[in-house]
């Protein structure tokens, strides 16, 4: 399989008056053609900063190092102009707020048509017809009427589907969706996720899905990267992560979720404490203060991602072997 995106030792810091906020600390991962990769983490875990770094959308004062290669070409350090050629053509992006990616003064139809014409040598009429088709694919009712709407005339869910339609028109290799459904209601979320699946099927693009919602990750990705305190702490297939997590944080996260598919009232097992400050992180494992399994070693040495039972299932825990077949209740209460 061709490797599309290769992120290597990506580090992002933001200087503040109190010192450097280490938002991302040495993150490496790959996305291959056709992959569907989820990045999951709570607020402040660095999951969004990672994707912003990939797309070259970090604020100017950010300090970035490491390497981000797309089809072998280095993206870090490129000028805005060079980046915008990649963005939107080879890499499409979908953000939480679709209004940021839509131009308020043009109809959605002309915005989709413009994307179509950027890649194919077709007439305006043909491009408009394609726009109607694309709106139909993403599940917008009455697409032939809706092409003439302006973004503000549409609901949040519809706008998000228009963004997906534009992404499809560009025929991208990779779609990066950063919390694409967080602001939306569940039934609308279902519509948008369906549209996203349709877009993938039609274009064959790989998907990088960034979200805090483990349910969305479970249904729409093949591989999962779990982030905590700016680092990848576990990576594996979706089944490995959900059925056999080897990092206490992942286990705790799953244990603290109330489940719609469980009757009775099993007590939730919360993780005590809150994530560490990304300023002056103490030595050792960042999860140590909240980890019931922590020992002396954890306070001294920060664990690296190491292979567990499977070569491609990695966990950043010194004692990950002890977590094989452990449950959240056993560990956290």
């Amino acid at each position: 399989m061709t490797v599309l995106l290769e992120v290597d030792d990506l580090t992002v810091g933001f200087p503040t008056e109190d010192g450097l906020v280490q938002a991302v600390r040495g993150v490496s991962y790959q996305v291959s053609r056709g992959d569907s990769v989820g990045i999951v983490g709570e607020s402040g875990s660095g999951k969004s900063v990672t994707s912003l770094a990939v797309m070259g959308l970090l604020p100017r004062n950010a300090r970035v190092s490491g390497s981000v290669r797309f089809l072998g070409e280095e993206l870090l350090g490129r000028s805005d102009e060079q980046m915008s050629k990649v963005r939107g053509s080879k890499i499409a992006m979908i953000f939480q707020d679709p209004l940021t990616s839509l131009n308020p003064v043009y109809t959605v139809g002309s915005q989709i048509a413009e994307a179509v014409r950027a890649h194919k040598d077709v007439t305006r009429q043909q491009a408009m017809k394609r726009a109607v088709d694309l709106l139909d694919v993403v599940g917008i009712p009455n697409p032939s009427l809706r092409v003439n709407s302006y973004p503000h005339e549409m609901s949040g869910g519809m706008r998000q589907r228009v963004v997906i339609a534009i992404a499809m028109a560009n025929d991208p290799e990779l779609i990066i969706a950063d919390e694409p459904t967080t602001a939306l209601d569940v039934t609308v979320q279902a519509q948008v996720l369906e549209a996203l699946e349709a877009a993938r099927k039609e274009t064959g693009a790989a998907l990088m899905l960034i979200t805090h919602d483990l349910g969305v990750i479970a249904g729409h990705t093949d591989r999962v990267n779990v982030m905590y305190a700016g680092k990848l702490v576990e990576t594996g297939t979706v089944d490995e992560i959900f059925y056999g997590p080897r990092m206490p944080y992942t286990l705790g996260l799953l244990g603290s979720l109330p489940r719609i598919d469980e009757s009775g009232r099993p007590r939730l097992t919360p993780i005590t404490g809150s994530p560490p400050s990304l300023l002056n992180l103490p030595a050792g494992c960042p999860f140590r203060p909240r980890c019931p399994k922590a020992r002396d070693l954890c306070a001294e040495v920060e664990p690296e991602l190491t292979p567990t039972a499977d070569r491609r299932h990695l966990a950043a825990c010194h004692f990950h072997s002890e977590l094989a077949s452990a449950t959240a209740e056993e560990v956290f209460s």
Binding site: G44, T272, G273, S274, S277, L278, L279, P289
Partner: peptide, 9 residues
């Protein structure tokens, strides 16, 4: 008592 360390000062 929940003795949480503050996420960001």
């Amino acid at each position: 008592p929940v003795t949480e360390t503050f996420a960001v000062r």
